[in-house]
């Protein structure tokens, strides 16, 4: 299929570009590491609730910074060039896939470093927390990819990105914090199934709407 081919090439292009500069990965990792370190210096010890909330606040800002660049960074000329080669649906799918993989990688490393600095509670359900982290980074990337496309077209970088994405991401974040709190408390996994389902539904919703709307967005 042509679309699958285009998506494959575009994702490969993103990875090659990233591999050459290693800017996003290293930049965001340094951002996460220094934020965690600052938090450690100011908190020293945190309780369960703060431990969870702090992790998601750090991840929220890290992912905004990581994904904001996906459209904002590309020059107008290069965007035009890509659009002449590939269909817009392929572009948004490729960007979403690339951002999801990048965010998952970042959040796994961030989680490992975070639990190294702040010791998690003994009864935490690590596997569940890990699933939630992966789901969370997936949702962050689907939402932020579309919003960064909108913000880049509006031609008004960073601030607009934050304003537009926060109200959209807050519901996801609330569900996410509830889900991870269940994991931190070591509750039975069946309790969290509702939240996991809702996260998946929101993701499907956002991806569908993005696919429908993006073709209108790139046409100038």
């Amino acid at each position: 299929m042509q679309l699958a081919q285009q998506v494959k090439h575009l994702v490969k292009k993103e990875f090659v570009l990233e591999w050459r500069s290693k800017y996003a990965l290293n930049g965001v990792l340094l951002y996460v590491v220094s934020t965690v370190f600052v938090c450690y210096l100011s908190f020293k010890v945190v309780d369960k609730l703060t431990w969870n909330a702090l992790f998601w606040i750090i991840m929220l800002f890290a992912s905004i910074n990581a994904i904001a660049k996906s459209f904002l960074q590309e020059s107008k000329g290069r965007q035009l060039y890509i659009y002449t080669l590939a269909s817009p649906v392929a572009v948004i799918i490729a960007k979403t896939i690339y951002n999801s993989i990048l965010m998952m990688l970042i959040s796994i490393i961030a989680f490992a470093f975070y639990s190294l600095v702040f010791k998690p509670e003994a009864d935490i359900d690590i596997l569940m927390y890990f699933t939630a982290t992966v789901l969370g980074s997936l949702s962050f990337s689907t939402v932020f990819t579309m919003v960064s496309a909108i913000a880049s077209k509006a031609g008004n970088g960073g601030m607009l990105m934050a304003i537009l994405s926060f109200p959209v991401i807050i519901p996801v974040l609330i569900v996410l914090i509830k889900l991870t709190k269940n994991a931190v408390d070591g509750l039975d996994r069946s309790v969290s199934l509702d939240e996991i389902g809702l996260m998946l539904v929101v993701n499907v919703l956002v991806v569908t709407v993005s696919l429908l709307l993006f073709p209108y967005l790139w046409r100038d």
Binding site: A154, P167, V168, L205, S210, Y216
Partner: peptide
């Protein structure tokens, strides 16, 4: 165009 897109994006949310 852009605000229409954001509006449609925001409604399901």
């Amino acid at each position: 165009k852009i605000s229409a897109i954001y509006n449609i994006f925001a409604f399901p949310m």
